[in-house]
Design a binder for these strands. Structure first.
Lengths: 205, 205
DNA sequence: AAACCAACCGACTTACAAGTCGGTTTAAGG
DNA sequence: CCTTAAACCGACTTGTAAGTCGGTTGGTTT
């Protein structure tokens, strides 16, 4: 039992540092030794806990990336308010490297999706599944928003979700270097513009 | 002189097949032998024409990718018509794998940008430069469109360009598998919705 | 204290891919 | 025909990184 704790602690350290370095340098561009040296651990320790580099990264996805995406992008959608400002706020938050989001997790999804696409079916499948959950939650929030009179009746909720996700993922390619405040601001402004065009406008009110 | 022709032809074959395979499997996931076997050429032949794999890919970027992006995304912007439908048409075209666009070139930019980001400064710099040229042309077309009364006066042209580019690049992460007609349609529809919100509406007319 | 075992060590094996190099082919010019 | 050099060949070198394995350490149990 005490041993299990030691095991968990080492695995946790490995996953945390792994995500940090994989995110900074890319999965295929990072060797296990890069990570192990940082933690003063050996190959032997690593393979005692994980059966392969792939198994290791899957652990990272399941334990860290999934959690972060849920916390930043999915749980905030569980609301009864007007969906549009809620969605904007969640995206703004996810793209903002600071406080609750020190590692710029908003950037990870597109990076890893592209890196594993066509190179590792297993991992890219899991990442796509995360996107899928996000999309489902966006769509259902938007549909509720339509029923509640926040969103115009003619709007295609699936289409909106697709468009929001695409633009969010794409920002990564533009924000590569430096957390460019200007670009982030432009993005949020245009998103607001777009959302304004699908909002229900109660002319009567 | 005749020799130069032979040289050019071989280099051209190498670049064409290289782009095809790099695009399909990723640059770092493709070995030179993968390409050379396809063309029944040897290492010796390769290094007779290119000084390294990197030099080779830079050739591909300059000779093939730049040309394609210009043809599909930049040259169409050289117009005096209403910018908004022109931009939509160019994007629709670029995402459509068929006829003039057999290799789905629209997908390349985001893939390669992500792959080379933080792994190869030289190449990622050149790719970003392509994006930059695209952005400049988009902005200048949008500004002209504003002067010509097609676009509302309050619109931030730089912001629109950023948003358009982000959403276009992001579509790649969603369209990974199979050229999904449904997603492409949704994307174009929402883009139209968004553009409608920034168009000048001549209520008087 | 002896035995046991999870955690850890690090040199070694294996695999793969970039780049090298001495030699061979081919075709144009004399 | 003979020379010359560009184009091409392919075995070899080199470097890197994943994964292996026999051995060591340190805490726990009896």
């Amino acid at each position: 039992m005490e041993m299990t704790l030691k095991r968990r602690e080492t695995m946790h350290r490995l996953c945390g540092k792994g995500l940090e370095i994989f995110h900074a340098k890319g999965y295929y561009n990072t060797s296990l030794d890069d990570i192990l040296n940082e933690l003063s651990l050996s190959k032997g320790a690593f393979y005692h806990h994980f059966k392969s580099k792939e198994d290791y990264f899957i652990n990272i996805v399941q334990n860290l990336i999934v959690q972060k995406v849920y916390a930043l992008l999915i749980e905030p959608l569980n609301t009864n308010e007007n969906p549009l400002p809620v969605i904007i706020e969640s995206l703004e938050n996810a793209l903002d490297p600071g406080k609750k989001n020190e590692m710029a997790y908003g950037f990870m999804l597109n990076d890893f999706l592209t890196e594993f696409n066509k190179r590792n079916e297993e991992i890219s499948g899991q990442l796509k599944e995360i996107l899928n959950v996000w999309e489902v939650n966006l769509v259902s929030l938007l549909k509720k928003g339509k029923l509640d009179g926040y969103i115009a009746r003619h709007v295609d909720c699936e289409g909106v979700a697709t468009y929001v996700i695409a633009s969010y993922l794409g920002m990564r390619s533009l924000l590569m270097d430096s957390s460019n405040k200007q670009l982030r601001y432009q993005y949020i402004q245009q998103l607001k513009q777009y959302f304004n065009s699908i909002a229900a406008h109660n002319v009567a009110a």
